[in-house]
């Protein structure tokens, strides 16, 4: 028998909040639990807060909404406001301690845990996989079997996991989260700072500029560069996603990246 468990997950659109929620809901249902999952996000779908409400119970879930969550998962400092309404002292709270300090969560729950998901993902794989680390962690907390969670992850993300490397990295990220032991520390400062300002790539009489506050990591510059001089790097931008890097020695300053970039975030030029 499982006690009724109410979970709220908040983050910024594009971070994978709804992916986490969907896979959790599927896995819990396959384990035989009654599940309700309600997604809530703005019309933009990306870049604004995204919220998932999940209720798990061994009895039928009659009403899907709730006032106070048993677990709150906070993936981005800009989405905290969405969670606080549903958090009280007893809500066990997990937050991405790589992106925010604990003081950002204003109503202090007693049990608050830092999970540096973006940092772990960036150091081990790519920041894109931070959501799978969180999914792994929450799956263990809810006592969902790892292999079942992985099966649903692989099926849900099938299109993105066509090549073996991507598949393996995703499984490893999920496992890293699953095996991570939650700690209670002071977590007073974020231990990972997104890149801010303009990143300059300099060399060979050429310069490349990347405005990290504008780049949304769409990858168009990477796909469009005719000589493959741009790839996704290890820096994380303000949208908690990887920023492209220009191999300036290779760059022919053709201007294709800035022509196609929808966000005016990249530019290359010859030094004057």
């Amino acid at each position: 028998m499982m006690k009724k468990t109410k979970i709220i997950i908040v983050g910024m659109g594009g971070q994978g909040v709804q992916t986490i929620a969907k896979i959790l809901a599927l896995t819990a249902a396959q384990k035989g639990l009654e599940v309700s999952y309600i997604p809530q996000f703005g019309v933009e779908q990306r870049g604004t807060p995204s919220v998932a409400f999940i209720t798990l119970d061994s009895k039928k879930v009659n009403y899907p909404l709730f006032d106070i969550a048993d677990w709150a998962v906070v993936l981005h400092p800009r989405a905290i406001a969405e969670a606080v309404k549903y958090v009280d002292k007893k809500t066990k709270t997990i937050f991405d301690s790589s992106l925010m300090g604990v003081e950002k969560i204003n109503k202090k729950p007693v049990d608050i845990f830092g999970l540096p998901a973006v940092k772990l993902a960036t150091e081990n794989f790519s920041s894109r996989l931070a959501n799978l680390i969180v999914l792994g962690q929450v799956s263990r907390i809810l006592e969902l079997p790892f292999e079942l969670a992985w099966k649903n992850t692989a099926e849900t993300l099938e299109k993105k996991l066509k090549n073996e490397t991507a598949r393996k990295a995703s499984r490893d990220a999920l496992l890293l989260g699953y095996e991570n032991l939650l700690e209670k520390k002071s977590f007073s400062k974020p231990d990972y700072r997104p890149k801010a300002g303009t990143i300059i790539f300099d060399g060979d009489g050429k310069q490349g500029f990347l405005i990290s506050e504008h780049c949304k990591s769409c990858g168009i510059c990477v796909a469009k560069c005719p000589i493959g001089a741009i790839k996704m790097g290890h820096n994380t931008g303000v949208f908690a996603s990887p920023l492209p890097e220009i191999d300036i020695a290779k760059c022919s300053v053709c201007g294709t990246c800035s022509l196609f970039c929808p966000d005016g975030a990249i530019k290359t030029e010859r030094k004057k």
């Binding site: 659109g13 594009g14 933009e44 779908q45 990306r46 870049g47 604004t48 506050e213 504008h214 949304k216 990591s217 769409c218 990858g219 168009i220 949208f239 996603s241 196609f260 970039c261 929808p262 966000d263 005016g264």
Partner: peptide, 17 residues
């Protein structure tokens, strides 16, 4: 108003540019 509100890789943003 930049970064604008469009999703990553949105065609609208490229067109408006």
């Amino acid at each position: 108003t930049k970064p604008h509100l469009f999703c990553p890789g949105c065609g609208h943003a490229a067109i408006l540019k």
